[in-house]
Design a protein around this nucleic acid. Structure first.
Lengths: 254, 254
DNA sequence: CATAAAGGTTGACGTAACGTGAAGGTCAAT
DNA sequence: ATTGACCTTCACGTTACGTCAACCTTTATG
């Protein structure tokens, strides 16, 4: 099957100018030029054009497309598999944007709080992905996966991180408490680690930390049956153990 | 809240050049210019910028954004609802592209036939709209919204939301305290609202709530100078006031 | 207290990926 | 022989900023 320039343009849904431009920059040369100087494209060019459009779809700039596709090591199947990943990323970003719009609507209607940071959260993640798409493709083809994903982590939202650490700390405390209680000694290293974590946990939510308040809270835990219910989930005595560990900790750390 | 140009740029994840450009073309003017000629942006400008970025996300050209947003009939909620539709269209186009890549991979591996027309089908936007209208819901159910990832998303949003409400509550408490203290009566409705908020704030981080613990904490606030430093930020006596309000609250609510 | 670093300002030219004529040759059908 | 659809090569225009340069302000530091 052979195509003139406008036939191919129509097939692919692009302009003839674009095809001439791709010719000019040596991204997509016609299969041959006929006797009157017309560009004629063949099956190979059709396939190559499709690949080009996939890259373009992912906002890879043309210079990069050229260098990737002209590389003798270029593997079209690997490239396509890479596209799949990128397209899915794009889609999940769209999902986030959709959620963001919904939230903004609710916010405008006064139904919901939305911080200024949150207002741009979904866009910012776009930044990461655009960076991904600009350099990710190239880097990934050359150095493989994990270099890329590591550098992305930097951009993560701080306050969310904080919250997650906070929740996780709460979890760790429960588990540590179970373990340390097994040992039985509130002055054991494990029990002291427990107390330290508990202090950390407190500093997340208390405006300021003081030994007295910490001690007071520990006593309160024991006195209040609801706290006991929480800490004693399986084995009774754990709340008292926690208190003792905290008191020992407070007495032995400046 | 006021922002300098780079603070706003950082918040929104765009460049300062972009903000200067938006100023130049009268798309987003700073709230005011300070004595040294610096651009200062306020809350209204933050909101407007978010709206601008939504339009930009949908590839609306700037001239159009200007004319839309400067229209006296501009309705931001309607615009947002429109964005939702557009974003969903974009997503279903992405879904088609993903299917197309999968098919192309199979085709390249010789596992499947693919016509030249089919190769470019997904790139074209018209088809998408037709498909949206024909199969809209069905497609979305099948390919669009991965149920698992979506519910994960919601969970993430929830916990994030919780965190922000928590932080904001802390803020509100400080402001309420200032106001209620002006009135001077710990039994006043405002002071009681304060106590209720304080309870709410506690339930965010305490595994369970009890009156005894709440009261204990209120006493502790007064006893500990660090807490006092926090609550008495400008005027001394506020911590005691807070305690009294809480105690009254606890005694008069079941 | 000087000075460097960081962040602000206004020009003004650069850029990517084509769009948009102009001026003219080619081809199938009337 | 003419019309109109398609092709060619210049060559300049466009959008939404990027990127200096030259200079002023504010904040941090030896």
């Amino acid at each position: 099957m052979e195509y003139t320039i406008s036939q191919l343009a129509k097939l692919a849904g692009i302009s003839t100018r674009t095809l001439r431009y791709y010719d000019e920059i040596n991204l997509l040369k016609p299969k041959r030029i006929n006797s009157s100087g017309y560009r004629i494209y063949g099956q190979e060019e059709v396939n190559r054009l499709q690949q080009i459009l996939f890259f373009r779809e992912l906002d890879v700039n043309i210079e990069t497309i050229i260098s990737i596709m002209n590389d003798p090591n270029y593997d079209s199947i690997k490239a396509l598999e890479n596209h799949l990943i990128q397209l899915r990323n794009k889609r999940s970003r769209l999902d986030r944007l959709i959620e963001s719009v919904k939230k903004t609507i609710a916010h405008e209607k006064g139904e919901m709080m939305m911080s200024n940071e949150e207002k741009f959260e979904a866009f910012k993640e776009k930044l990461i992905e655009e960076n991904e798409q600009k350099y990710g493709e190239e880097i990934r083809q050359k150095y493989g996966e994990n270099v890329v994903s590591k550098s992305n982590e930097k951009f993560r939202n701080m306050s969310k991180e904080d919250y997650e650490r906070f929740v996780q700390l709460g979890d760790e405390i429960l588990k540590l408490l179970a373990k340390a209680y097994e040992i039985g000694d509130p002055t054991s290293p494990l029990a002291q680690e427990l107390a330290a974590k508990h202090k950390q946990w407190l500093t997340f939510t208390w405006p300021s930390y003081s030994k007295e308040a910490h001690r007071g809270l520990a006593e309160m835990y024991v006195a209040d049956e609801r706290f006991k219910a929480y800490y004693d989930q399986k084995v009774t005595g754990r709340t008292e153990f926690l208190r003792d560990a905290i008191i020992h900790y407070l007495e032995n750390n400046s």
